[in-house]
């Protein structure tokens, strides 16, 4: 039982100096598929020999609530959680949620976001006018144009014919910014392992969608 702790504390260090550490925040509303997107990035990174840690929202907060994942890739972190100003990338599945998580973005970080809102049940009750456009406007005002990619998730869903692949549409767009540090091939390999063959074709189409 001795010495194991040394390994735990000391070996997450230095041997891979050229590896870029990446901190990513994925966020959205329960049921949008953020967890699978986060798992695919993790699997692809691990395939390249990188260590990965993540923290997900699990439990009562899931259904219809806001969900997030902190995802950390690299060889030097101890905890899965990020503090404000540490994220290289925010991948937002819902515009309001993207803004909610914006404090995580580091100066010069990149935001990829869906522009279509998910209106909360409370909005129906209170008659709030939230439609997501105010969030996109805010992001455009506060981020440099080359640091913000807005994806129309609804258009993708309509063309692909399934609301279930929104996650792949956004993941594809995010990977192609180059900011996640993984290639399309890396992710597609991971998809082959994590996604059932019957759903592969649709998911691949979704993954490639946002380039068209």
């Amino acid at each position: 039982m001795t010495n194991t702790v040394k390994k735990n504390i000391d070996n997450r260090n230095t041997d891979n100096k050229n590896i870029v550490n990446r901190n990513i925040v994925l966020c959205g509303v329960g049921g949008q598929g953020t967890v699978l997107a986060s798992k695919l990035i993790a699997a692809a990174a691990m395939e390249k020999g990188l260590r990965v840690m993540s923290a997900e929202t699990i439990g009562m907060a899931q259904r219809g609530g806001n969900v997030f994942s902190n995802l950390r890739i690299g060889n030097s972190m101890h905890a899965p959680l990020l503090r404000s100003g540490q994220a290289d990338v925010i991948l937002g599945f819902e515009p309001g949620e993207t803004v909610r998580m914006l404090h995580y973005l580091k100066p010069g970080g990149t935001v990829i976001t869906n522009c279509r809102p998910v209106k909360p049940t409370t909005a129906t009750l209170t008659g709030s006018s939230y439609d997501g456009s105010e969030m996109i406007a805010y992001l455009r005002e506060n981020l440099a144009a080359d640091r913000l990619l807005v994806v129309d998730g609804q258009e993708a869903i309509d063309k692909l014919g399934s609301p279930r692949v929104l996650n792949m549409v956004l993941l594809g767009a995010a990977i192609r910014t180059g900011q996640i540090g993984l290639t399309e091939e890396d992710i597609k390999k991971a998809m082959g392992r994590l996604i059932k063959p019957a759903f592969m074709e649709l998911n691949l189409k979704a993954f490639d969608f946002a380039r068209q």
Binding site: Q62, G64, G85, T122, E134, N142
Partner: peptide, 19 residues
């Protein structure tokens, strides 16, 4: 304290209590 990007107050973000 570590520096974070200062941004203006965002528009009101809807709350999503569990239902």
């Amino acid at each position: 304290a570590a520096e974070t990007a200062a941004m203006p107050e965002p528009p009101q973000i809807p709350v999503r209590p569990p239902v």
